[in-house]
Amino acid sequence: MIRGIRGATTVHEDDGAPILQETEKLLREMITKNQVNAEAVTSILISVTQDIKSEFPAKALRKIDGWNYVPIMCMQEIPVPDSLEKCIRVLMTVNTEREQKEIHHVYLENAVQLRPDLSINQK
């Protein structure tokens, strides 16, 4: 069965190093909490808000051993007024036997406010 795993985080500034660091942290957390291996991943989509321009967050995946061949793509989030700033969102599509309620979506940093209902169960 194919399932989507959601995740999001934020950075404090538009700078390459923090963008890669926070994205890698988010991806590793999504992978660990859902026990995902690279072969089970169909693709990963990453969106960023308009205020993130200095680096492709997708590069962070290449720092994780065994994930070189996973298709990944970055795009810009729609600019909704008063939306969360400096936000990186991830949608990882995986083949899994887990039920929808067993998927652990991950929200870090200021992105916790996007889905506080899901963030409560992250521990």
Rank of each mutant, 00 (worst) to 15 (best):
R6H: 06
R6E: 10
G7I: 06
G7M: 13
A8Q: 04
T9P: 13
T9D: 03
T9I: 02
T9A: 06
T10Y: 07
V11M: 01
V11T: 01
V11L: 02
H12C: 03
D14G: 08
D14M: 10
D15V: 14
G16M: 01
G16Q: 07
P18A: 00
I19A: 10
I19L: 01
I19S: 01
L20W: 06
L20T: 03
Q21H: 04
Q21K: 07
E22R: 00
K25V: 01
L26P: 11
R28E: 10
R28C: 06
E29G: 05
T32R: 15
K33N: 15
N34T: 13
Q35Y: 10
N37F: 07
E39R: 15
A40Y: 08
V41W: 08
T42E: 14
T42F: 09
T42W: 05
T42K: 10
S43N: 13
I44W: 05
L45P: 03
I46A: 08
V48Q: 01
V48I: 01
T49V: 04
Q50C: 04
D51K: 08
D51W: 08
D51Q: 06
S54Q: 15
S54Y: 03
S54T: 14
P57L: 12
A58L: 03
A60W: 00
A60P: 02
A60D: 01
L61C: 00
L61Y: 00
K63L: 10
I64V: 00
I64F: 00
D65E: 14
G66L: 04
N68I: 05
V70I: 05
P71I: 12
I72D: 11
M73N: 07
C74H: 12
P79Y: 08
V80E: 06
V80S: 08
P81S: 05
S83M: 07
S83Q: 12
L84A: 11
L84M: 07
E85I: 02
K86R: 15
C87K: 14
C87S: 13
C87N: 12
C87A: 14
I88P: 06
V90A: 11
M92V: 12
T93F: 07
V94M: 05
N95H: 15
T96N: 08
T96K: 03
R98D: 14
E99C: 05
Q100K: 09
Q100Y: 04
Q100T: 09
Q100R: 11
Q100E: 11
K101A: 11
E102R: 04
I103G: 13
H104R: 15
H105E: 14
H105K: 06
V106S: 05
V106A: 07
V106M: 12
Y107A: 05
Y107L: 08
L108C: 06
N110F: 09
V112Y: 04
V112N: 02
Q113A: 11
L114V: 09
L114C: 10
L114H: 09
R115L: 12
R115I: 02
R115E: 14
P116D: 12
D117Q: 10
